[in-house]
Amino acid sequence: KKVTINGVEIKFNNPEEAVKFALELAKRLNLRIEFHGDQIKIE
C-alpha cells in the first residue's frame, strides 16, 4: 500500500502504519494534518 505524504510516496504494509507515522510526524513538528484518501497533507 502506497501513501503519499506531502507529495512523497511512502510504501507501508498497512494503512494504519501510514496514519500512525503521519500523526507522529505532525505531533513532533507541531503541524496540522489532512487526510484525502491515500493522500496525507501535513503543514
Rank of each mutant, 00 (worst) to 15 (best):
12 F>D: 00
16 E>L: 12
1 K>L: 15
31 L>M: 12
6 N>W: 14
13 N>F: 12
42 I>K: 00
20 K>E: 09
14 N>H: 07
33 I>W: 05
10 I>T: 02
12 F>K: 00
39 Q>R: 09
43 E>C: 15
40 I>W: 02
16 E>A: 10
40 I>Y: 01
41 K>C: 14
18 A>T: 03
7 G>I: 14
17 E>H: 05
17 E>A: 11
34 E>S: 11
14 N>Q: 04
40 I>P: 00
40 I>S: 01
37 G>Q: 09
38 D>P: 04
9 E>I: 13
1 K>M: 15
34 E>C: 14
43 E>H: 12
2 K>W: 12
37 G>S: 07
35 F>T: 03
16 E>I: 12
20 K>A: 10
39 Q>P: 01
38 D>C: 15
1 K>E: 05
31 L>S: 02
39 Q>F: 14
26 A>C: 13
9 E>H: 09
38 D>H: 05
22 A>N: 00
30 N>M: 08
17 E>I: 09
38 D>Q: 08
43 E>A: 09
26 A>I: 08
9 E>T: 13
30 N>I: 07
11 K>R: 13
11 K>H: 14
40 I>N: 01
16 E>P: 04
38 D>K: 05
39 Q>H: 13
25 L>C: 11
6 N>G: 10
7 G>K: 07
36 H>K: 08
23 L>F: 07
2 K>F: 11
1 K>F: 15
42 I>F: 06
8 V>Q: 05
31 L>R: 00
16 E>Y: 11
7 G>S: 03
11 K>G: 07
36 H>W: 13
8 V>L: 10
5 I>K: 02
7 G>D: 03
2 K>E: 04
35 F>C: 14
32 R>H: 09
18 A>S: 03
15 P>I: 14
28 R>Q: 09
23 L>R: 04
7 G>F: 10
39 Q>S: 12
43 E>N: 11
5 I>R: 03
21 F>D: 01
27 K>M: 10
13 N>S: 11
36 H>C: 14
32 R>W: 12
41 K>M: 12
37 G>R: 04
16 E>F: 11
20 K>L: 08
20 K>P: 02
14 N>M: 11
4 T>Y: 13
26 A>S: 06
27 K>C: 14
12 F>L: 03
20 K>S: 05
24 E>G: 05
8 V>I: 13
36 H>T: 11
27 K>H: 09
5 I>T: 02
31 L>C: 13
23 L>T: 10
36 H>D: 12
34 E>T: 12
13 N>I: 11
36 H>R: 06
28 R>V: 09
18 A>H: 03
34 E>P: 01
34 E>K: 06
25 L>S: 00
33 I>Y: 02
23 L>D: 04
26 A>V: 09
5 I>V: 08
32 R>Q: 09
11 K>A: 11
13 N>W: 12
8 V>K: 07
35 F>D: 01
36 H>N: 11
6 N>R: 06
10 I>W: 05
21 F>A: 09
25 L>F: 06
5 I>A: 03
37 G>L: 07
14 N>L: 11
25 L>T: 01
36 H>F: 13
15 P>C: 15
17 E>K: 06
22 A>T: 04
19 V>M: 14
32 R>M: 08
25 L>Q: 01
6 N>V: 13
22 A>E: 01
14 N>G: 06
2 K>D: 04
12 F>M: 03
26 A>T: 03
10 I>E: 01
35 F>I: 11
7 G>P: 05
3 V>D: 03
36 H>A: 10
25 L>R: 00
16 E>D: 09
27 K>V: 05
7 G>L: 11
3 V>E: 04
5 I>D: 02
21 F>G: 02
33 I>A: 01
4 T>N: 07
13 N>C: 14
15 P>S: 13
18 A>W: 14
1 K>T: 14
37 G>H: 07
28 R>L: 11
37 G>K: 07
37 G>E: 11
10 I>H: 07
38 D>E: 05
29 L>K: 02
40 I>F: 02
42 I>D: 01
37 G>F: 08
6 N>I: 12
21 F>C: 15
37 G>P: 09
23 L>H: 04
39 Q>C: 14
34 E>I: 14
16 E>C: 15
9 E>Y: 09
29 L>D: 02
40 I>Q: 00
11 K>M: 14
20 K>W: 15
24 E>P: 00
13 N>K: 12
5 I>M: 04
31 L>N: 00
5 I>F: 11
3 V>S: 02
4 T>W: 13
28 R>N: 06
5 I>Q: 02
11 K>P: 05
20 K>N: 06
30 N>H: 10
7 G>V: 11
13 N>Q: 09
16 E>K: 07
12 F>V: 04
37 G>A: 06
15 P>N: 09
6 N>E: 04
22 A>D: 00
9 E>R: 07
38 D>V: 06
2 K>T: 14
18 A>L: 13
41 K>S: 08
11 K>L: 14
1 K>N: 10
17 E>P: 03
34 E>R: 07
42 I>P: 00
40 I>K: 02
41 K>W: 14
12 F>P: 00
8 V>T: 07
11 K>F: 15
25 L>Y: 07
35 F>S: 01
39 Q>Y: 14
36 H>S: 10
33 I>K: 00
13 N>L: 13
29 L>C: 15
38 D>F: 11
33 I>M: 03
10 I>K: 02
21 F>T: 04
43 E>P: 02
2 K>S: 12
6 N>P: 02
32 R>A: 06
20 K>F: 09
15 P>M: 14
7 G>R: 04
37 G>V: 07
34 E>M: 08
8 V>F: 12
5 I>Y: 09
24 E>Y: 08
2 K>V: 15
6 N>T: 06
42 I>E: 00
24 E>C: 15
1 K>Q: 10
22 A>I: 15
35 F>Y: 08
10 I>L: 09
16 E>R: 08
28 R>T: 05
30 N>S: 05
2 K>P: 06
21 F>H: 03
21 F>L: 10
6 N>Q: 08
26 A>F: 10
13 N>D: 12
17 E>Q: 09
22 A>M: 13
17 E>W: 14
21 F>Y: 09
21 F>K: 04
37 G>Y: 08
